[in-house]
């Protein structure tokens, strides 16, 4: 593992090692990310991209880091790369889809949850939430109770073709929400306990 670190840092002096409990981890500047990834895949045999995610550091600058986990089949070892997003207001990152097609969905999820745009991504859309959803739920300022939003609009295309109304199912339901129609903060006991501080007031409402 020390060897990997030496090789990588010899080739890319800008790559710093990062604190980690388990696997070797590195901080990579965004402009070198594609080169580093290609080198890791082709020369150091980290052929698999197992995960892409992000962390919102809240009031720290830079605010967002994108985290990549690579796996080497021959070494049976993982490696972590962390890249900071320069701009906290409209964060963006280069896409690694050209190196690993696996990144496609992972990066869409990061965009969906954190609002980090990936440059040169072939299909930069939301993946878990619907397309018109206005928030980025895994950002730290987003409340656990959620924010009441408009549900996806009726699918007019289907209605014109078949005369059947296709509307979104109501979001309330499940064990915590005995009375549908109430805001989630009243129905979900944990959400009700959320303490909104002066620094972090509940949006809307």
């Amino acid at each position: 593992m020390e060897e990997i670190k030496k090789q990588l840092q010899e080739r890319f002096p800008a790559v710093e090692s990062r604190d980690s409990v388990d696997w070797p981890a590195f901080n990579v500047p965004e402009e070198r990310l594609l080169e580093v990834c290609r080198y890791l895949r082709d020369d150091l045999d980290y052929a698999m991209l197992v995960d892409v995610t992000a962390v919102d550091w809240s009031d720290v600058i830079p605010r967002f880091s994108v985290i990549y986990h690579l796996f080497s089949v021959s070494r049976s070892a993982y490696l972590r790369l962390a890249v900071n997003c320069a701009d906290a207001g409209a964060p963006s990152m280069v896409s690694v889809c050209s190196i690993w097609p696996a990144a496609n969905w992972h990066e869409r999820e990061v965009y969906d949850m954190f609002g980090i745009q990936f440059k040169n991504h072939p299909d930069m859309r939301r993946i878990l939430m619907w397309d018109d959803y206005p928030y980025f739920p895994l950002r730290k300022e987003f409340p656990l109770a959620g924010i009441e939003t408009e549900l996806p609009p009726e699918d007019t295309e289907v209605r014109e073709a078949t005369d059947a109304h296709v509307i979104a199912a109501p979001m309330m339901g499940g064990p915590f929400h005995a009375t549908p129609g109430e805001p989630m903060s009243r129905a979900e006991p944990r959400a009700a306990d959320q303490s909104w501080t002066e620094k972090n007031p509940k949006p809307l409402d």
């Binding site: 980690s20 409990v21 388990d22 981890a25 995960d51 993982y78 972590r80």
Partner: peptide, 10 residues
């Protein structure tokens, strides 16, 4: 009470 750090386990 957990220590600070980053960990990835599969």
């Amino acid at each position: 009470q957990m220590p600070a750090g980053e960990v990835y386990f599969e």
